[in-house]
Design a protein around this nucleic acid. Structure first.
Length: 425
RNA sequence: GGGCAGGUGGCAGAGUGGUUGAAUGCGCUGGUCUCGAAAACCGGUAUGGGCGCAAGCUCAUCGGGGGUUCGAAUCCCCCCCUGCCCGCCA
């Protein structure tokens, strides 16, 4: 959601910014609705004031046992005048909210121009891509080891699900534990075990609703399965006014994520790159407005740190205007090198949502230096997608000669003595 | 799932139709007093919106939504949540 006063003051800036995402000018309609609504509001409030005063007068008259019939008749007629205005006010308000809640966040000036992922800009790179002629993809490795079973998943659940078995399941679990421990012990995040289902309000707060309902799973009870722990972790502060000293808040959680992948038909159909369900370790930060830019860099480094510890090569991309998410002001994607595909694939996305979600959630803070409350800034980042991290470890650490995956050093404490994942062991 | 009791300001807790945005206490905060502190005393202390250069005026909000009424925190209806008892259950 947006600050209407700011739009009023500077409509052309908003339109120019939205144009970078390919949107037509929006402010003419917004301003027309806003102006009309305020005019109606003012009229209505004048009548309400009159009604309140006269009603009080009636009370006073009655207390003195005097006749109040004439004043009561006046109030009745005021109420008639109010009815149309009330309806118009509600109608204009609804229209305005509907329009505003469907518009994406304003972009930072630092976001590069571009229409799609080709416009993304590499900001740094770590390690060298591992190129091997005999590199194979994760699903081939998994099936060869007998530890990744898409066929059974198809029978039991359908497409875009998988059974992971045995040591490979343990490796996936180790990855999640390692990431959580790193963020809680080294990076200052508080571990949360959150609900995996949320209500409409929460989904609206982080901007999955109203626009992206199609991408979500909804239960028969009206709950939504979280598409990412961002939803629950960020909404922990909804409707709160936080004190400056309590900030920043840093939360992390390891949760399953559920996505319908509507509109992704035909994309990544083989293997477990794109599933309806996957584990992810999420980081969420809630900051004061002046701290979110540095927090964004910090969070991105926390995510990169996991890849470094795992000995994986990656590059960090600044997403361009055409590829950046709806709620984000600025996003870094981290792409890990997959030898089997011989390309970089997204494994983390770290976004600064600025006050966009906070406005929807009514999440505010009180600064010592300011009298009024301010909206907090919210940030979220994957740290990392566990399923994709498993893929990366498999493809980067697989040795076709021994048909085994070497366990990265960082995961050894979590593997109960296993140094490799292989059929023989 | 059945029954009962509740949801009021940062917290506790009054308030069952009339100048109640809301008593009182606690907390917080400014001041007086004091060498300083404590105590005591005095004052301030919700959020969002509209109008206004400003001072200020005003509207809305007592879980959410609708209704009755000249007037609703107070009455009626629906929903949500919390607590307790019973049943069921990982």
């Amino acid at each position: 959601m947006f600050d209407l006063k700011a739009i009023r003051d500077n409509p052309q800036n908003f339109d120019k910014n939205w144009a970078r995402r390919g949107l037509a000018p929006q402010t003419p309609v917004i301003l027309a609705l806003d102006e009309r609504r305020r005019a109606v509001q003012t009229q209505l409030q004048t009548l309400q004031q009159e009604r309140n005063e006269k009603s009080k007068l009636i009370g006073q008259l009655k207390a003195k046992k005097e006749n109040a019939d004439a004043v009561m008749a006046e109030v009745v007629s005021i109420k008639v005048d109010m009815e149309n205005l009330e309806e118009e006010e509600r109608d204009l308000g609804d229209k305005l909210t509907t329009l505003l809640s469907s518009l994406p966040n304003q972009l930072s000036d630092e976001v590069p121009d571009g229409a799609d992922e080709h416009g993304n800009v590499e900001v740094r790179k770590h390690g060298e891509p591992l190129r091997k002629n005999d590199a194979i993809e994760h699903h081939a490795i998994g099936e060869l080891l007998g530890m990744m079973d898409f066929e059974t998943a198809g029978r039991v659940s359908g497409s875009r699900f998988v059974f992971i078995k045995s040591q490979l399941a343990r490796l996936e679990r180790a990855l999640g534990q390692f990431m959580l421990d790193t963020h809680t012990q080294k990076n200052g995040y508080t571990e949360i075990s959150p609900p995996l289902m949320v209500n409409d309000t929460a989904m609206y707060g982080t901007a999955q609703l109203p626009k992206f309902a199609e991408d979500q799973f909804k239960t028969t009870t009206g709950h939504w399965l979280i598409p990412t722990a961002e939803v629950v972790l960020t909404n922990m502060v909804n409707d709160l006014i936080l004190n400056e000293e309590e900030l920043p808040l840093r939360f992390t959680a390891l949760t399953p994520c559920f996505r319908s992948e509507a509109g992704a038909a035909g994309k990544d159909t083989t293997g477990m790159i794109r599933q309806h369900q996957f584990y992810k370790v999420e980081m969420v930060s809630i900051t004061t407005p002046d701290k979110s830019i540095e927090e964004h860099e910090r969070m991105t480094e926390c995510a990169e740190g996991i890849l470094k510890s795992l000995g994986l090569s990656y590059r960090t991309m600044a997403l361009c205007a055409g590829d950046i998410g709806f709620g984000s002001r600025k996003t870094y994607d981290i792409e890990v090198w997959l030898p089997g595909q011989a390309r970089y694939r997204e494994i983390s996305s770290c976004s600064n949502c600025w006050d966009f979600q906070a406005r929807r959630m009514k999440a505010r803070c009180r600064l010592k230096s300011e009298k009024d409350t301010k909206f907090v800034h919210t940030l979220n980042g994957s740290g990392l997608a566990v399923g994709r991290a498993l893929i990366a470890v498999m493809e980067n650490y697989y040795d076709p000669m021994t048909k085994s995956i070497t366990v990265p050093d960082a995961l050894l404490p979590y593997m109960g003595g296993l140094k490799t994942v292989s059929v023989a062991a």
